[in-house]
Design a binder for these strands. Sequence first.
DNA 1: GCCAACGTTGGC
DNA 2: GCCAACGTTGGC
Length: 153
Amino acid sequence: MAYWLLKTEPDAFSLADLQAAPNSTTVWDGVRNYQARNFIRDGMQVGDKAFIYHSSCKVPAIVGVATISKGPFADPAQYDASSDYYDPKATADAPRWFSVDVKYAETFAKPITLQQIKADPAIVELALKKSGRLSVMPVTNEEWQYLYGIASN
DNA sequence: GCCAACGTTGGC
DNA sequence: GCCAACGTTGGC
């Protein structure tokens, strides 16, 4: 079992939207960054847990948890010519982009703000602290426990 | 809306 | 395969 952090813009798709979705599940598609793609394709497994992080909003923060419920599989949007995520270079034999299904798990009563994360000397390794631009990043077991503890206190 | 950081593209 | 130009992201 591994831990991850998934970024989303709440204006486009928030944790509340995930909770409200059918079966509280959605396809996490549209990841179009190779490093992020590799984490999904080569690292993610059903049962993994992910922090959901809200970016490009008033208070950027880790707001809750979702579970990887299916996949990884080829991102269907890459074959959809009407999608913003369409990639003409992707083929069925050689998909370029990958997705997983994520299922809502919980919303933190006290979201962990980016400000808090940056100010916390105990958080050293978290990728979010260094480059906030990656849309999928791994979280170590230690980081997960520590952050989860903050959100639950 | 600005700007820094960083990933991607394409010419050579 | 290098690197400059360009586009995108995201915090502020």
